[in-house]
């Protein structure tokens, strides 16, 4: 039985109708991902159907091994599915070669990980400049850093910044290219609550001000309140998609 198909969702008809009139940014059908692991195969994704739209903020929830990260990586062109189709603006990503995926990531996707993965030998400004140099229509590094409220730390090296500041540089770096998609894999996983909130506020702000489709993985179900839609994964299936009538601003969330 499939309960994860968008059509079968228990959502108000008006909302569904409204979404059907828009073209989805991503459309996944029957996505599967199987990792060979020694003698046994690990099914990380087992038939995922999903449409994601411009400007949405999506929170992906699920236990470890539920397939959240695999889904995120496939959406971002870091990985390819074993079966099924995935289109981005109607282009089939499953047929893309390595070079096309690189171009897709370069032009359209911003990533944020739990570990900030800044280049330690470059300052905040330079870490961002690394991207603005190769992007098609970037903001200035300064503009991107202002957006995450780090304009006073531009010439600091990663080792001179706190974890939250580093993660905000990572966000600035991810959004400086004005990506259409921002993919965040547990961006606050390594941060304390207070710092986590500043980071999430930055993500929220990017989503609202730039209209970037944002997909956020978290273990923290409280964060579901900040999303337009909350998707639950378990064992490689989507078990539930919930739509929030209103998004709650990050600063009002109670952890």
């Amino acid at each position: 039985m499939r309960i994860d198909a968008p059509e079968s969702l228990d959502t108000p008809p008006s909302a569904t109708a409204q979404e059907e009139t828009r073209e989805p940014l991503f459309a996944a059908r029957g996505l599967e991902k199987v990792y060979p692991s020694g003698e046994v195969e690990v099914r990380a994704l087992n038939g995922v159907d999903l449409d994601l739209y411009e400007g949405e903020l999506i929170v992906l929830l699920g236990a470890s091994g539920s397939g959240k990260s695999t889904l995120l990586n496939i959406l971002g062109g870091l990985d390819v599915p074993s079966a099924g189709t995935l289109t981005y603006r109607g282009e089939d990503l499953t047929q893309a070669d390595e070079g096309e995926l690189t171009r897709f990531r370069r032009d359209s996707v911003g990533f944020i990980f739990q570990f900030y993965n800044l280049i330690p030998s470059l300052t905040a400004r330079e870490n961002v400049a690394l991207i603005t140099e190769i992007a098609r229509d970037p903001m200035t590094p300064e503009g991107a850093l202002q957006l995450v409220e780090l304009d006073d730390r531009m010439d600091h090296f990663p080792s001179q910044m706190s974890g939250g500041q580093q993660q905000r540089v990572a966000i600035a770096r991810a959004i400086a290219k004005r990506p259409e998609v921002l993919l965040c894999d547990e961006p606050t996983g390594a941060l304390d609550i207070k710092t986590g909130i500043t980071v999430l506020e930055a993500i929220e702000r990017v989503n609202l001000e730039l209209g970037t489709l944002t997909v956020l993985i978290t273990h923290n179900s409280v964060l579901a309140e900040m999303a337009d839609r909350v998707i639950h994964l378990s064992d490689g299936h989507i078990v539930d998609i919930r739509e929030n009538r209103t998004r709650r601003p990050v600063r009002t969330l109670a952890w």
């Binding site: 870091l78 171009r103 370069r106 993965n117 800044l118 280049i119 190769i134």
Partner: peptide, 16 residues
């Protein structure tokens, strides 16, 4: 390797 992987994820080509 971490720096290089980061660059790859951000869309740098192998050559870059």
């Amino acid at each position: 390797s971490r720096d290089l992987a980061t660059l790859r994820v951000m869309g740098f080509t192998h050559r870059e």
